[in-house]
């Protein structure tokens, strides 16, 4: 596996995906302890996980469209939160 710098995003764009990343992790860890007994909160969580996942994917789609980063078959992109740099991870 190799990593290669293929671009950058703005600090505002970085903050947006970092918040979504944190929220997604938070929801995922919350899901481990929340049961369907707490129906109201459980419903909220399930809905939230779906919405956050969609927003997360939308961000990558929007940015890929905007910046036209290099890509390869079977590869993926990663963001370094400290710098806003986008890395291409090749298998």
């Amino acid at each position: 596996m190799t990593k290669k710098l293929v671009g950058n995003v703005t600090p505002e764009e970085r903050d947006e995906i970092q918040m979504l990343f944190e929220r997604r992790n938070g929801l995922y860890e919350l899901a481990k302890i929340l049961t369907a007994d707490n129906a109201e909160l459980y419903e909220k969580l399930v809905k939230d996980m779906g919405e956050t996942g969609t927003k997360f994917q939308n961000w990558w789609d929007r940015m890929a469209e905007k910046y036209q980063w290099e890509s390869v078959n079977g590869g993926s992109w990663e963001i370094i939160f400290e710098t806003g740099e986008i890395m291409l991870v090749e298998p």
Partner: peptide
């Protein structure tokens, strides 16, 4: 567990960070 649940229930801004 209580912190996570409470932050989420309260829509507290710390849930995201």
């Amino acid at each position: 567990d209580y912190i996570k649940m409470s932050m989420y229930e309260l829509n507290h801004h710390w849930f995201d960070s």
